[in-house]
Every structure is written in structure tokens, then in C-alpha cells.
């Protein structure tokens, strides 16, 4: 059960709403799983959940305005009501999915490597040795910045490597970047 620790992080991410943000919890040991190593799983900031909710709400609102506008222009009030209901239902589903996806994100810094897990339908867990790191990228888009969040991505020589952690509080993101950089230098090895 490679993804067994999810439940533990979920509860912590919900209750931990301090500004440092990253929900920290020593996860429960599953049966024969990575969590037995008792690494500390960290999760993105709870504010990422809020950001995602705003994103969904904005999209839904735009769709709503469009749908109602078209319906009224045509002159069908019933269609407007149906469209509005549809948008609201779809929006709520999208919000729930977005919430689950945020909760699925997690990362753990181990002695030799970084583990990142994500995904609800397609679950992924990546193990990237620090020594394989080529560079670390820290990005923060306008919306992320408004929420004081940033995305950290660790790049290796393999294009397929998948080590992106979104929605980290700016302080934690900077710490992780520096940590990864120094660890990468310490373990550096060629191709």
C-alpha cells in the first residue's frame, strides 16, 4: 500500500491552519509500505485549498454568467435556471475533486532522497535521489503570490522525473529550495 499515509496527512492538513502552513505529521506505519521508514510527510499549505476553491469559483462564475446571458438573450428563463443549476452542481463536484487533489499532495525529505506523492485517480509517488538533482526551480504565479504561496520543482537529467510541489508557503518554499540545493551539492554525481 504505497499510498497508505494519505489519511494521516489529510487530517493534519485540515486542522493545521497556522501560517507556517505545511501540515507536518509523522505518518502511521502501513503494511509493508514506505511510511514504515517513519519519514515525516509534509503537505502543501491549507491556503492552496482556498486558492483552488477560488479558481473553481471564478471559472464557475464565468460559466454561470455566460449561460444565463445566452439563455436570457434567447428568452428562455427555464433554460437559464437549468443552466445555473448545472453550473452549481458541476462547480461543487469540481471543488470536491480539487480538494481531494490538494490533500493528496505530500512530500518527505529523507536522508538520501526526496519523495513526492500526488494524484487521486492516478496516484504517483516519486523517489528522487538528491545526487541526481540538476537544479531547483521556484516559481510563484500572480495568484499564488497573492496567497503567499510558491511552487518548488526539482529537475533531474531525466525529463520524466516528477518532483513538483505546489502551494508551499513562501518561507517553506525558500527553505526547501536551499535545503535541496545544498543536499544536491553534497551528493552530486555525474550522469
Amino acid at each position: 500500500m504505497g499510498f497508505g499515509g494519505r489519511a494521516g496527512v489529510r487530517s493534519s492538513a485540515v486542522k493545521d491552519s497556522t501560517d507556517r502552513g505545511a501540515g507536518i505529521v509523522a505518518s502511521v506505519a502501513g503494511e509493508g509500505d514506505l511510511n514504515q521508514a517513519r519519514q515525516i510527510w509534509r503537505a502543501p499549505s491549507p491556503r492552496l485549498r482556498v486558492l483552488r476553491r477560488y479558481e473553481v469559483a471564478t471559472t464557475a462564475l464565468l460559466a454561470l454568467i455566460l449561460a444565463i446571458g445566452v439563455s436570457v438573450a434567447v428568452g428562455a428563463t427555464l433554460a437559464a435556471v437549468v443552466a445555473a443549476l448545472c453550473v452549481i452542481v458541476l462547480g461543487s463536484i469540481a471543488d470536491v475533486v480539487a480538494g481531494r487533489r490538494v490533500r493528496a499532495w505530500g512530500y518527505a525529505e529523507r536522508e538520501e532522497d526526496l519523495i513526492v506523492r500526488r494524484g487521486v485517480m492516478f496516484r504517483r509517488m516519486s523517489v528522487i535521489p538528491y545526487g541526481r538533482m540538476q537544479y531547483v526551480e521556484l516559481t510563484a504565479g500572480p495568484f499564488e503570490r497573492a496567497f503567499g504561496l510558491a511552487t518548488v520543482q526539482m529537475h533531474t537529467a531525466a525529463a520524466a522525473s516528477d518532483a513538483r510541489i505546489p502551494g508551499l508557503p513562501a518561507v517553506e518554499a525558500a527553505r526547501l529550495r536551499d535545503q535541496l540545493t545544498s543536499l544536491g551539492e553534497a551528493h552530486a554525481m555525474g550522469l
Binding site: M121, F122, R124, S126, A158, A160, S161
Partner: peptide, 20 residues
């Protein structure tokens, strides 16, 4: 010695069959 990273993937069909 050339492996850059290791990834575990589990899709919905795989999950229902306990595969990854």
C-alpha cells in the same frame, strides 16, 4: 547506476486489481 528517479504509478483500473 544510471537511474535518475523511481516513480510508482497507480491508475484507477490498477487500483481495483491491487496493481501498480
Amino acid at each position: 547506476a544510471k537511474v535518475q528517479s523511481v516513480r510508482l504509478l497507480e491508475g484507477p483500473i490498477q487500483r481495483s486489481l491491487a496493481l501498480s
